[in-house]
Design a binder for these strands. Structure first.
Lengths: 248, 248
DNA sequence: CCTACGGCCTCACGTCGCGTGAGGGTCAAG
DNA sequence: CTTGACCCTCACGCGACGTGAGGCCGTAGG
């Protein structure tokens, strides 16, 4: 009876549960009330297990499988997409943890390269030094970031990410870069850099904005939040610079 | 107040919950009873979010963070391991879904190569044909497996996997390959092949067993269930062959 | 000054996918 | 005829919140 089911990696209680919610009701019962699972039931169970392992909620599994127009192919394709997303998430978290560990171990000298997370730091570090090594901003950033703890970095990453998401959301909502809301976010962006890395006046900020659209690596990095986000942010920064420098 | 918190991707209720279970209790309350989160609280919250996203249960997060000897490094290393496991799981599921899709699309002719899941089928198919293409077993296997549906394959995969896990468990428990229990599992293995692929007499089974230890690809594949599992299974099969052919 | 409105508070019950007994019937073996 | 091993049906518990209900706080407007 349930030996068969237990072998499938499930408990008796799980089967009872599936019976109770109508996900898998055995066709037959012995006169004593024992559940008797047929081959067909077991096949259905196999499918259920697969979907469950893919993280599909049970009621959705039921509606999927009870749908007369049940298309296993479409379902599988969708599950594959979900899995891809999950894999990417996991990879991202792994990278974050690895980065945190490197910082903790002091193996890696944090500098401007960390300013734009997602880049290959080793590739980028030399270039950053070559382009900005002579500037005060670079020195200040290097000085500050050396003092940051793992927790600081995690927090910075989160705050940066969160702001970018809000920017992307605003753009997705159809806003123009010259809208006050967009300029406000650009201003927040400036202040974030100011707080975390180096004094970032409007002129410096404008320089960054131009780089976001001219250097395709920056563009690609920012466009992870949505296509055109880099350009939107750059335009919003420009607008904010105008606003910030005209009255003063 | 909670604007700050909501921005972090959490709901007010979540913060209440964390307060209720003592995970994050704001230091201050306004005279009206409003929760006032300090910078320190927010830092702690960031950490909590990180751990939560890594799938750590909340009470563990609490004990981790309240532990005076809290070692962020060790914690991170452990989290990395967990993430690795999760990534592997996800990858395995992706492969399974892809395989199912290929079968469904009929793009791939299933044959002996599927007998030992985890191998690169394209690499393996030619070799399998070259080595066993002239045999009756190969023809029979090809004939049978063509008729299998996606559900069949999922079930076969599960049954195979389940048996291997039982074999690995027996070995881990310190059993000898010549123990009756081990021989029984070897016999089950033989019958599984017999049912799913082709008539598998003891001699054929012995041939498979030798291949499991001589072909390092098979060894590696089976040793996914634990180091030495391939050798253990091979020895158990040999013992079972002796048992099965001597009385008859 | 009253009122509306949004935000905050505290209960307190609902959800999901089961785990974990309690209390009792069934079945084959000794 | 008892002993276990298995099965059944309630029914409550858990973890991490969601989702109101009912009420206090604070401020902007009429």
């Amino acid at each position: 009876m349930k030996e068969v089911a237990r072998i499938g990696g499930l408990t008796v209680r799980t089967l009872h549960h599936y019976d109770a919610i109508g996900l898998l009701c055995p066709r037959l019962r012995s006169k004593a009330g024992y559940r008797l699972y047929t081959e067909a039931d077991l096949l259905r169970l196999q499918q259920i297990v697969v979907y469950r392992e893919l993280g599909v909620p049970l009621d959705q599994i039921r509606s999927i499988m009870d749908d007369p127009a049940f298309e296993p192919r479409a379902a599988l394709v969708e599950q594959r997409e979900r899995l891809r997303e999950r894999a990417e998430q996991t990879q991202g978290m792994l990278r974050a943890v690895d980065a945190a560990l490197r910082v903790l171990d002091g193996e890696e000298v944090i500098d401007m390269s960390e300013l734009f997370d997602g880049f290959d730091p080793s590739q980028y570090e030399d270039e950053a030094r070559a382009r900005w090594g002579h500037t005060d901003a670079y020195a200040e950033s290097a000085r500050r970031t050396k003092g940051y703890s793992t927790e600081d970095w995690v927090r910075i990453q989160r705050e940066t990410d969160e702001l970018m998401q809000r920017i992307a959301a605003l753009r997705a909502a159809g806003a123009s870069p010259s809208d006050p809301a967009a300029m406000d976010l650009a201003e927040e962006h400036r202040q974030q850099i100011d707080r975390f890395y180096y004094p970032c006046r409007h002129e410096i900020h404008r320089g960054l904005a131009r780089m976001y659209v001219e250097d395709s690596r920056f563009t690609a990095n920012l466009d992870r939040y949505g296509e055109g986000v880099a350009a939107f942010l750059a335009a919003a920064i420009e607008a904010n610079v105008e606003r910030g420098t005209r009255p003063g």
